[in-house]
Design a protein around this nucleic acid. Structure first.
Lengths: 148, 148
DNA sequence: CTTATTGCAAAGCATTTGCATCGTG
DNA sequence: CACGATGCAAATGCTTTGCAATAAG
């Protein structure tokens, strides 16, 4: 955890950005809740517990900054809200998501799974793939018994 | 084209919705611009050419209705705007998109390509896949020579 | 005829921005 | 100490809603 904060601090400094207490608090929340897919508002409320003076605008600005540096990815599951997801360490690609249509839970898939599909797209469409977004909508394991 | 309008009319009636002139004009715009990925505002302006009295709210309401009936899909490429995309006739799944990071063009992929990945997800994660969203971000064929 | 649908304007949200102030490097 | 970063409040922009008027089946 401290190790990852250090890393991020270096990434910021490399672009001559500062790691302010507000930014650090925000990053800590993201690290602690890595499994979740928090909205800016969610993050704001959690950061406020550590640093009560923080403003929502700062959280937005920090998240935008972290997005630029590819430390977090901004995703959108179709409700009107953006969610922010920490990149896995050393991950070349963004990971995938399983959204349950029943209970709303979001599961993550870290495995690539798309290598072959990307090859097909590069060769068949002449499109040079840089990144991807893949989300499956369906029924998660826990909700399936409830289905008849 | 008329055939597809008829089909949609039937789908509406099946749920006891009416095919008003405003709704028909909206559907016609979607059919005419099937390749594009129009925002509600875009659609509104185009519908206005056919039916100048229409209100933006009606366009939103119509698009929401068509979404419910799975006639269109609502997508979001990360700018703050929702875009609306007509489902291909008889397509079991939503089609994929290639978004060019250079020129912003959006290309469509009608081929499934995910059959195998979905199998892996169903078996490995116990997740019953109902639908998917797949978007690749990268450089399209036309923009590649312009690179470096 | 009845009830869904419309248009307009106002309201609602998530996100962004202006600006004076503050604090990091 | 300079300049980037912050907090607040106001502004923005997309989308939704309330309501009286209208029209489809």
């Amino acid at each position: 955890m401290e190790h990852r904060i250090e890393r991020i601090k270096k990434q910021l400094h490399a672009q001559s950005y500062k790691l302010t207490p507000q930014r650090e608090a925000t990053v800590r929340v993201l690290l602690e809740r890595e499994e979740d897919h928090l909205s800016a508002e969610d993050i704001y409320l959690l950061v406020k517990e550590k640093a009560p003076e923080i403003g929502l605008a700062t959280v937005y600005r920090t998240l935008e900054l972290l997005s630029e540096l590819k430390i977090v990815d901004k995703i959108n599951f179709g409700d009107g809200v953006s969610r922010y997801d920490l990149r896995k360490e050393g991950a070349a690609h963004f990971h995938h998501h399983l959204v349950c249509m029943e209970c709303g839970t979001v599961e993550e898939i870290v495995e690539d799974l798309l290598e072959e599909v990307e090859l097909i797209v590069e060769e068949g469409w002449g499109f040079q793939v840089k990144d991807h977004r893949l989300t499956f909508h369906g029924i998660c394991r826990d909700c399936q018994p409830k289905q008849d």
